[in-house]
Design a protein around this nucleic acid. Structure first.
Lengths: 226, 226
DNA sequence: CAACCGACTTGATTTACGTCAAGTTGAATT
DNA sequence: AATTCAACTTGACGTAAATCAAGTCGGTTG
């Protein structure tokens, strides 16, 4: 019963299960498995057999891919409410990416098989899922465009503003090590250091301790060009 | 009746309408509108009201977005079989992007309303669409990663190989002006010129006339590093 | 066929950023 | 409180590629 209760919490969190009637929510909850992953542990690794959709109930996970040339690239940061594995729900493949928990994390799992059944039964779930994927495509397109046309400084400034907005405060610890942040922004830790110092010097932010940051001038940050 | 016939051709072309029974195909075809767009004309422009999914029956279309800073970015190249507008099918918004036909083009349109009905009636369509979107997400993630970690030379070489494979010949005209190709690869026309020259000099390709290219050493191209 | 014009090429210069190397810091452990 | 170590910072240097500027090419038009 406790399990079912936790699963319902999971289900309610996630956009793709919104707007369902209570009956369906309960049905979904029965299909969903819950799992805890501690900081530093892997949610899944490249090469794992991929047969489940993963839904973030709580925590933060970094998804990385290593390229042919051996370089590691941070593909994505999963936050509460995000889901991953969509691309894999309809074909039988191995995971191309690895996912490491950055904080203690709670996830919900639903198998390919169950999810496909669900879609056939509930058009609402299908439409929500299409919606979510559509948004994700838009975001990725925007991100791809930004990556090609903007400087590291712009991307970093933008990241700070976004993070601040997500955390709902302008005074926060960076959720990522600079190493990982560098991967995420497609740059090097050294450059991140330098850019942050630059922002400090020009008064846009204040830094304290290892990775505490306070934004002083959000409008200014959004206009950074280098 | 001719119209219906053309629409069926359209429907049969597109992955998301695959594996449907004849009855459903015919039903879909009734919902689909056909349209021709001449080279240089716009399929849609930023600011247009977006209420239709666009399916490429034939031709090539470039989708661009201008950023806040006024720079134009080539978001995507639509080829036969691709579709666009998915992100917009479930919410009522304006188009953020513009789409210009690079060749004479034939497209099929289906309205948001009709498409949503379709999904509710046919789980197969829903699943195909989820599949297609999932693949697209994967591609975009891979592309984003590649953009951040690879040099212009690598991206250009990769583009040449892909294009060759799509056109099914190693001896072809570049479908894009170098200006547009530069936008697509996130570089400048000058750099494209230079890199192509470099490839020529090292015997990887041959150039003829304004934009005719022959690939001499595909394996070599795939190993380009700069 | 001349002349026109956008697209492309080529060269010269600048610059953001990556990389390597040598410190420095601060959190965790004992 | 002393020790340790990964994470970070800072500096010096090299380089891919952007930008600026001046041609050149080739298709189009009258």
């Amino acid at each position: 019963m406790l399990e079912h209760h936790d699963a319902i919490a999971c289900v309610k969190l996630v956009p793709i299960f919104q707007q369902l009637d209570h009956e369906t929510v309960s049905a979904v909850a029965d299909l969903v498995q819950e799992r805890h992953v501690k900081k530093g542990e892997f949610v899944f690794m490249a090469g794992d057999h991929a047969d489940s959709l993963i839904i973030m109930a709580h925590g933060q996970v970094k998804v990385t891919q290593s390229s042919a040339s051996g370089r590691e690239q941070l593909i994505r940061l999963l936050q509460t409410g995000d889901f991953d594995g969509e691309s894999v729900l309809f074909e039988d493949t191995e995971r191309q990416t690895s996912a490491e928990a950055l904080t203690d994390t709670q996830i919900c799992l639903i198998t390919r098989e169950d999810f496909q059944k669900l879609i056939k039964q509930s058009p609402t779930v299908a439409i929500n899922m299409l919606n979510a994927l559509g948004k994700r495509v838009s975001e990725l397109e925007a991100q791809a465009a930004a990556t090609l046309t903007t400087s590291v400084g712009e991307r970093l400034a933008n990241y700070l503003v976004e993070t601040s907005s997500e955390l709902d405060t302008d005074d926060f610890d960076l959720p990522l090590q600079k190493k990982d942040l560098a991967l995420y922004l497609g740059t090097s830790p050294e450059t991140i250091s330098r850019k942050l110092k630059q922002f400090s010097t020009s008064g846009l932010i204040s830094q304290r301790g290892r990775n505490h940051i306070k934004l002083n001038d959000i409008d200014g940050l959004m206009m950074v060009e280098n």
